[in-house]
Amino acid sequence: MDAFVIFFTRYLPAFADGFLITAGVAALAAPAALIWAIVLIIPRLAQWTWASRLVDAYVEVMRNSPLLVQMYLLYFGLPLLGLFWSSIVCGVIAIASQHGAFLSEILRSGIQSLSQRQWEAGSAIGMRRFAVIRLVILPQAFIKVLPALGNQLIVLVKDTSLVSAIGVMDLTLTGKMTIERSGASFEAFIAVAFFYLILTSTLGLVLRIIEVRAARRYG
């Protein structure tokens, strides 16, 4: 236990840096994924048949292949196209493109669960289709799927650990580096796990509060 405390205090600055990188990657990827998800449901809402089929195919590919391989594809593939983007950028794009697909599925199920009358009422008072989507459909769907969105966001935070595989010095890679440098073994990953728990449980708590508030206000 003593050894653990000494180890922990010595490497705390490194873990703090890793923690900030992990939180930063998550803070970039989460809004990007959400925006991408909204972009992905536009073709279906606008009833563009071919574009929505394309989106469906994209979502299937994302759902049924590992994020790690998608990340490798970007990280090792983009330089071949002459795009030398940093590993953080590649990681964020990969996370956003997979989680965007998942989030768009969740939003879609929320939209489908809304009554057809919402659409009809919107157009009956003279709103255009786009206005109905923006002012009537999306806000309600959003509130409805808030718990599922929250769960997916927590999965996203955990998935940021994959950026360590392409060399971003996040919490996970910090843990591995600490082991290689200090000769410590699993203690490093107990610390890493602890920091991830702080991150995911705080986020979980905040999301719960938002959910309860939203339910009270709009439910």
Binding site: K158, S185, A188, F189, L197
Partner: peptide
């Protein structure tokens, strides 16, 4: 359930990988 669901699987893998020898 709380501990394992709150931590990335990659970290659990590393934890296992390094703690079995210990």
């Amino acid at each position: 359930i709380f501990l394992f669901r709150g931590v990335p699987v990659l970290v659990i893998m590393f934890l296992g990988f390094y703690s079995f020898p210990a």
